[in-house]
């Protein structure tokens, strides 16, 4: 992919304008426009970072510095699904590493690697804010899969291979019984 071929569509440019309108400076839109770019290309490799910089009329070095600071931006191409397995604190003590190692065994790759078919990338990540539902993982910066077991992981992989992503799971407080009941109906 050469830099010339990269461009935002009119719809994306409109979205970028809406993002810019939230802030008094273009610079403030950097993180959000990197997200727009990552959604489009699946990564923010250097040429995509430059597209973001040029679109926002910012120094390319600035966008490069920002992209490299935040871990959710993929600076390299990844598999179709990125499985971010939390192994931090609560997940560590509740079997996060077992889940990670199980995934590694199942997919035949190590954390940080991508399967040969380009389907899965596994990453070991820091706390994702789902400590009460440990162990857990996040699929490609999106949905959370909570309270994992090896069986649940196998099912998840199977579904993902079929293109079926898990659905958002509402974790209702145990004190909210009425809500729970409503949700289960």
């Amino acid at each position: 992919m050469t830099e010339q071929e990269l461009a935002f569509t009119q719809d994306e440019l409109d979205e970028i304008e809406r993002i810019k309108a939230k802030f008094p400076t273009n610079k403030a839109a950097t993180l959000r426009v990197l997200w727009v770019a990552q959604e489009k290309y699946g990564h923010v490799k250097p040429e995509v970072q430059n597209l973001v910089a040029d679109t926002l009329d910012l120094p390319r070095s600035h966008v490069h510095g920002v992209a490299s600071f935040y871990t959710q931006y993929y600076k390299e191409e990844t598999g179709t699904y990125v499985l971010d397995v939390c192994t931090c604190l609560s997940c560590q003590v509740c079997g996060g590493y077992d889940i990670l190692h199980h995934l590694e065994d199942e997919l035949g790759i190590k954390a940080g690697e991508t399967t040969e078919d380009g389907m899965f990338t596994i990453q070991e990540v820091e706390c994702l804010g789902a400590c009460g539902y440990a162990p857990m993982l996040q699929v490609t910066n999106g949905v959370y899969a909570n309270n994992l077991t090896k069986e649940k992981v196998d099912k998840l992989i199977e579904n993902l291979r079929k293109g079926k992503k898990p659905e958002f799971e509402s974790m209702v407080m145990r004190q909210n019984e009425k809500r729970k009941k409503e949700l289960s109906q």
């Binding site: 070095s61 600035h62 490069h64 600071f69």
Partner: peptide, 21 residues
């Protein structure tokens, strides 16, 4: 000229230009 930035994070930090620059 804004040609430099710090890249990466923590003890992996170092100064760099944008990749194409």
């Amino acid at each position: 000229t804004n040609q430099l930035t710090i890249v990466s994070r923590g003890d992996k930090n170092y100064p760099m230009t944008a990749p194409s620059e």
